[in-house]
Design a protein around this nucleic acid. Structure first.
Length: 757
DNA sequence: AGCCTTTCCCTTTTT
DNA sequence: GGGAAAGGCT
């Protein structure tokens, strides 16, 4: 409940100061449906937050009566912080403010039994999803070469994104995949999840949606509860989310959706721009507010972004304008290859740094996650501090997922997926054979793997050695569970990892990564202490799957274009503007014009992240999957307005014809280097034909040359102490005590003794 | 069962 | 160029 002193605000509330007319309109039009069409950099987030604060501060509703939904945890976090600040609230954790998934979990826990789940259901990760699908394919004798588990899971997810339970998939569509057999897999997949008392990500929304549709009383309750609904990034809603929202909003109709059709970049995840176009039909009498004044970028940047996006058809059409100066020209630079591009960006960053630019105001926005590596390597050698946003996530690491499996098992012994994962690691003499016996026993008795194991150790089904080992495991798990209520959970986690031998498994491992893994495990145990209970921690992990890495430090950000949505930087580098890479060949092959337009919106998003400076680059050659591919500059380069850009070429790259027979970017099938389809030839790999043996021999020679050897303890001027993991000429891969594993140049490294250790 | 070697596939994008 | 899975050997 709110502090009363904060609810009374006379005259013009201070928090709306400085809002322009349209923004004010969007904030104050509190009753009835409102659609805010907000262009990039128009203060959309501020409007949404202020609107929420305004509803509460004017006493229109209590905090518990407002539902505010965002797409990303980042956006939710930002909104929470801002609202708390505006209204001077110590905590907004209990409010209905969060991502679609976080809100859905909260609702689903309360009504899980209506879809055949317990309220303590587990949320499974992609790993478990795939394992399940693989099992089901095998059981149904479907060839996993012809039906790769990933594609099958993709089909299932697409159905879920569209809000279709197995029963709601149309017969004709079901037939499309393996004559309906994939649809059958979907059915048994859902069945299996239910038996496991588990949900995947898509289920969180799908189940909640089904509950709304089938339990009028539940929906009516939520109607009564939520007087106001706010939605951010409405253009990114998929069908399931759209239906979910529409049902909820039909209560008070006080729904305010904020979005930008030009920034719809999640079509591949089932997002439908159509949802935003349909708003007026769904909510008759809706008020439409347009935010077109851009406060972020210079005139030239805005002109460039507008010019590119104008090549798309079927837009709602907004005309962004700014009072800001024209600013600097945008720069477009062509380079010989990816390495040269990284060198160029590195140099430019150093220039900016010399001119006093803060590095946290610089970002490198790439199309694919794999592109980050080149920049990382370059920044490492130049000692430019950087962070990869949304890259390798802490909770996705192997050792963390393994450890989490143990914790899940302790939290609920019937989590069979966790059982399967924990029992194999560390080795206990219980391999596929033993597990198979437990599996079939469990299937027959219709009980969880853990219960089956407990019963099996009383019989002669397993060989004596396996039986003994299994009995030990079962009693260990039972012991840990018994301790659950008498022990602080981070202590318990420590104990579990210790007693299970999992920690020891990595401590005894001599490989160079092992040390870092042990540290990660310690970090996990520490993180656990911040949560109320084990269950709460596990839920947080499955929903957020991200650690808030060191923020607030002065570092260049490297991230994907998708990851950059909602952010802004003074200077933005946009590398990799090459046909095939960006626009992405696969997107175009699979989605045609629709795919291309989404790529173009991505370009628009990228450009509009920049406040003052945008530097676009492309490379003529790029190494992909170990072989070389050549490409021509992206068509998006040609769509930039000439009067606002400066083209620079590197040794005539931009205008010079590429070497003969180097066509586009290869087909979407990523053929082997020596084949390749006609007209889409790829350059022959420099390394093709080289056997692994030859490569290894070459590696040995270079190891002796660099003066460092594998396993040596060394000191790096920036990252501190570490162990040499591998040596390739001048490049060392070092597993650092503090900074993880990194590739560095050997001249930045000295033997540990010399560093005065 | 477990270890080592070879082969395959991969790179769009994320809650 | 790298990680996972399959395959082969002890």
């Amino acid at each position: 409940m709110m502090d009363e002193s904060q609810t009374q605000i006379d005259g013009q509330p201070p928090y709306v100061e400085g809002l322009n007319e349209s923004q004010l309109e969007a904030v104050e039009a509190t009753d009835g449906p409102v659609l805010v069409l907000a262009g990039a950099g128009t203060g959309k987030t501020r409007v949404l937050t202020t609107r929420l604060a305004h509803i509460l501060a004017t006493g229109k509703a209590f905090p518990g009566q407002v539902l505010a939904v965002t797409f990303t945890n980042k956006a939710a976090q930002e909104m929470k912080e801002r609202v708390a600040k505006i209204l001077n609230q110590p905590s907004v954790e209990r409010w209905w403010l969060g991502t679609f998934h976080a809100i859905a979990v909260r609702m689903l826990r309360a009504h899980a039994e209506k879809v055949g789940l317990g309220s303590d259901f587990a949320i499974i990760d992609t790993d478990d999803q795939l394992r399940l699908v693989k099992q089901l394919l095998k059981e149904n004798n479907l060839d996993d070469k012809k039906w790769p588990p990933k594609s099958v899971l993709g089909a299932i997810q697409r159905w879920k994104d569209r809000g279709q339970t197995p029963d709601h998939v149309s017969a004709s569509e079901a037939k499309e995949f393996a004559g309906g057999r994939i649809h059958g897999i979907y059915k048994s997949y859902q069945q299996r999840l239910r038996e496991l008392n588990a949900c995947d990500f898509g289920d969180l929304l799908l189940h909640t949606l089904v509950i709304f549709q089938t339990h009028a009383d539940v929906l009516a309750d939520y109607h009564r509860r939520f007087h106001y609904i706010l939605v951010d990034e409405y253009q990114d809603t998929n069908v399931a989310q759209y239906l979910w929202l529409r049902l909820l909003a039909q209560g008070h109709q006080n729904v305010c959706c904020v979005g930008d059709d030009d920034q719809s970049i999640y079509g591949w995840r089932g997002a439908e721009v159509g949802n935003i176009l349909r708003f007026e039909k769904d909510f008759p009498g809706a008020k439409i507010v347009r935010l077109e004044r851009n406060y972020r970028s210079t005139g030239r940047i805005l002109a460039a972004a507008s010019s590119v996006i104008s090549h798309n058809e079927g837009r709602l059409g907004k005309t962004l304008w700014t009072d800001d100066d024209d600013g600097e020209m945008l720069r477009v630079r062509g380079l010989w290859d990816g390495e040269a591009e990284a060198r160029f960006v590195g140099e430019e960053v150093e220039n900016l740094q010399r001119n006093g630019q803060k590095l946290d105001q610089v970002a490198v926005l790439v199309r694919t996650g794999a592109m980050t590596r080149e920049f990382e390597e370059r920044f490492l050698t130049l000692a430019i501090p950087y962070r990869v946003v949304g890259g390798a996530r802490f909770y996705e690491r192997l050792e963390i997922r393994d450890a989490l499996a143990y914790l899940r098992l302790v939290n609920s012994a019937d989590d069979s997926l966790a059982f399967e994962r924990s029992i194999g690691k560390p080795k206990r003499g219980l391999g596929p054979a033993a597990l198979g016996i437990v599996h079939s026993y469990a299937r027959q008795a219709e009980i969880s793997l853990f219960k089956a194991a407990r019963e099996i150790v009383e019989t002669d089904e397993l060989r004596p050695a396996a039986r003994k080992s299994m009995a030990t495991f079962v009693s260990q798990v039972e012991r840990w569970q018994g301790l659950k209520n008498d022990m602080p959970h981070s202590e318990l986690a420590d104990l579990v990892l210790e007693e299970s031998g999992y920690l020891e498994f990595w401590q005894n491992d001599k490989s160079v990564e092992a040390k870092g893994r042990v540290e990660n495990l310690r970090e996990l145990i520490n993180a656990l202490g911040e949560y109320e209970s084990l269950a709460e921690f596990l839920e947080h992990v499955s929903l957020v799957m991200d650690t808030n890495s060191q923020t607030g430090q002065d570092m260049v950000s490297i991230m994907t274009l998708h990851g950059a949505k909602g952010l802004e930087f003074e200077t933005v580098f946009l590398p990799g503007w090459e046909e095939g890479l960006f626009p992405n060949q696969r997107a175009m092959d699979e989605q045609g014009l629709k795919g291309l337009e989404e790529e173009r919106r991505l370009a628009y998003v990228g450009l509009t992240r920049a406040r003052k400076r945008a530097i676009i680059s492309f490379a003529a050659n790029r190494r992909m999957h170990g072989s070389w591919a050549s490409a021509i500059p992206s068509r998006f380069v040609d769509e930039l307005p000439h009067e606002h850009i400066e083209r620079e070429s590197d040794r005539g790259i931009y205008s010079a014809p590429l070497e003969p027979s180097y066509g586009g970017f290869g087909s979407s099938k990523w053929q082997d280097n020596d084949r390749g389809s006609p007209g889409m030839q790829r350059a022959r790999s420099y390394s093709s034909g080289e056997s692994q043996l030859v490569r290894k021999a070459a590696q040995k020679i270079s190891e002796s040359k660099s003066g460092f050897s594998r396993g040596e303890r060394v000191f790096h001027q920036k990252f501190g102490y570490g162990l040499v993991a591998s040596v390739e000429g001048e490049r060392l891969t070092i597993s650092f005590d503090k900074a993880g594993s990194k590739k560095v140049l050997s001249n930045f490294v000295v033997p540990a003794e010399q560093a005065g250790m």
